[in-house]
Design a protein around this nucleic acid. Structure first.
Length: 273
DNA sequence: AACGCGCCCTGTCCGC
DNA sequence: TGCGGACAGGGCGCGT
């Protein structure tokens, strides 16, 4: 569920609360969420550790610990992270992992579909893994020239292309569709057929839609909640995603829905070529 | 070897 | 009302 803006919103919330927190106890109700040799090994590695910082890489939440190791959480489709002093009263019904801190606060990882992952990396291991992801679209490295060169290499439809985290990191189905609409590029357009002008527009529209969504604390379709357990406010600003049949905001043509690689794509057949 | 499909899992909604 | 099917923000592993 959460894409870059939603994960970024959660990271900013957690950054205000987690640094300095020391883990007293780790409880695991759904071990299939963990990427670990065993639950006891995971618990031993984390007990007594203090959290130093919280960052985002692609859609991963990256928590640096005081021994140089790293706790990495990926929310999958329905993951939520909530910090609370009343863990029994959150209303969360699918808590998979619970971190109790020494200061009476608790960090809960809840995940209905359990597509998420919680993994502990020894010092240096996460840094190496993080190198595999593509360019961060909000970073200075994401230039029009860079996007043009990358798209030369692929015949994939642009909607699929944008969902690959090893090309551009953090883009999911909502913002891929929204950025393509704003850029006037159809989801089915093959990557290597985009012009320089189109890649320049797409670079700008992708950054704009991601930043505008961060400014509104993300999009809540159904499940997404931030670390305060609150919904995001970007939903009314979506122009094509989940709007099949509704008039295009530019020209009034009904928005179309098609399926690409088993996932919905939305576009205006008049405004996008 | 890049690409697309099926699948992991639970919940919700819609049509019959 | 109940039931079956489609679909949901992600990404891995597999066959081609």
């Amino acid at each position: 569920m959460p894409e870059l803006p939603e994960v970024e919103t959660i990271v900013r919330d957690l950054r205000e609360r987690l640094p300095g927190a020391t883990i007293a106890k780790v409880s695991v109700k759904h071990p299939d969420i963990l990427v670990a040799d065993s639950v006891p090994k995971f618990q031993r590695a984390l007990r007594g550790r203090t959290m130093n910082s919280v960052d985002r890489r692609a859609k991963n939440i990256v928590i640096a610990l005081d021994d140089g190791s790293t706790l990495v959480i990926h929310l999958g489709m329905t993951g939520r992270l909530v910090v609370t002093t009343a863990p029994e009263k959150t209303g969360l019904r699918h808590i998979a992992v619970r971190f109790d801190f020494t200061d009476a606060r608790t960090l809960l990882y809840d995940d209905v579909r359990r597509f998420g992952r919680v993994e502990h990396f020894q010092a240096g291991h996460w840094d190496r893994r993080a190198l595999e992801f593509g360019v961060e679209p909000l970073s200075d490295a994401f230039t029009a020239a860079h996007l043009f060169e990358l798209t030369r290499l692929s015949i994939s439809p642009m909607r699929n292309w944008l969902l690959d985290p090893y090309r551009v990191a953090g883009v999911g189905n909502i913002y891929a569709n929204e950025a393509l609409f704003r850029a006037g590029v159809r989801p089915t357009r093959r990557a290597n057929t985009l012009t320089r002008a189109e890649t320049a527009r797409l670079r700008d529209t992708l950054r704009a839609v991601l930043q505008e969504s961060i400014d509104r604390r993300g999009t809540t379709l159904n499940d997404y909640r931030d670390a305060r357990n609150q919904e995001g406010a970007f939903l009314p600003l979506l122009q094509v995603y989940d709007r099949a049949g509704e008039p295009c905001v530019n020209c009034g043509t009904p928005i179309k829905r098609i399926v690409l690689s088993n996932r919905s794509a939305f576009y205006c057949s008049r405004c996008q070529r």
